[in-house]
Amino acid sequence: MLEYFTSLNDHNLPYPDTIHPILVHFVIAMVLFAFACDVIGYFTGNTRLFEVSWWNMLVATIAIFVAIIFGQFEAGLAQPYTLAKSALNLHTLIGWSLSGIITAITAWRYVIRTRNPQKLPIYYLGAGLVLIVIVGLQVYLGDQLVWVYGLHTVPVVEALKDGVLR
């Protein structure tokens, strides 16, 4: 039974496929949806959307840490080759930074919500826009790791095992 826990599959993972992208896409969707709700609520005066945004940011704040844990685990198992290391390192750095940024923005949002849940400062929307840009950069780097460098794809894993990539 222990051999099933210690053996890696053809994706170099102990489970069927990567979990990090699933969790990350969840976080991305929640952050983008929260920002959209804030912008629409701000310009239409529909303050109920501020509550939707708040809960999305709260769940995204929790989920990003779970995504990072799986990302760190899966990055370690990926055995990145030389060309992929710089993109992976930058992706890791921005990922950890995003966890702090999202946490700070969610904390700020909590303060705004407790003071006046019917009003949202324009500066908060500006911070949300900056967050969206950083998330976009992170998505680009993550796509690059999969679609350009092929981390956790069968051909790249086989090439690493055969010593073709270093």
Rank of each mutant, 00 (worst) to 15 (best):
L49K: 06
L58P: 01
A34F: 01
I28S: 04
F33L: 11
L32V: 09
T47D: 07
L58I: 13
A34P: 02
A36E: 02
F26E: 11
I62A: 14
L49M: 14
W54I: 01
L58Q: 13
W54D: 04
L49C: 11
N46H: 11
T61A: 13
W54A: 07
L32C: 11
S53D: 04
G45F: 01
W54T: 02
I64Q: 06
A29T: 10
L58K: 13
V59M: 14
E51V: 07
F26W: 12
G45C: 03
I64H: 05
G41A: 12
G45K: 03
E51T: 10
A60I: 08
F43P: 01
R48S: 15
N56D: 07
V31G: 04
T44V: 03
F50L: 03
I28T: 10
C37M: 14
F50H: 01
N56R: 08
F50Y: 14
T47F: 13
A63T: 12
D38M: 11
F26T: 15
G41P: 12
F43C: 03
A36D: 05
N56V: 01
M57P: 00
W54G: 02
I62D: 03
L58W: 10
S53V: 04
C37E: 10
V39Y: 05
V39W: 03
A29S: 11
V39F: 07
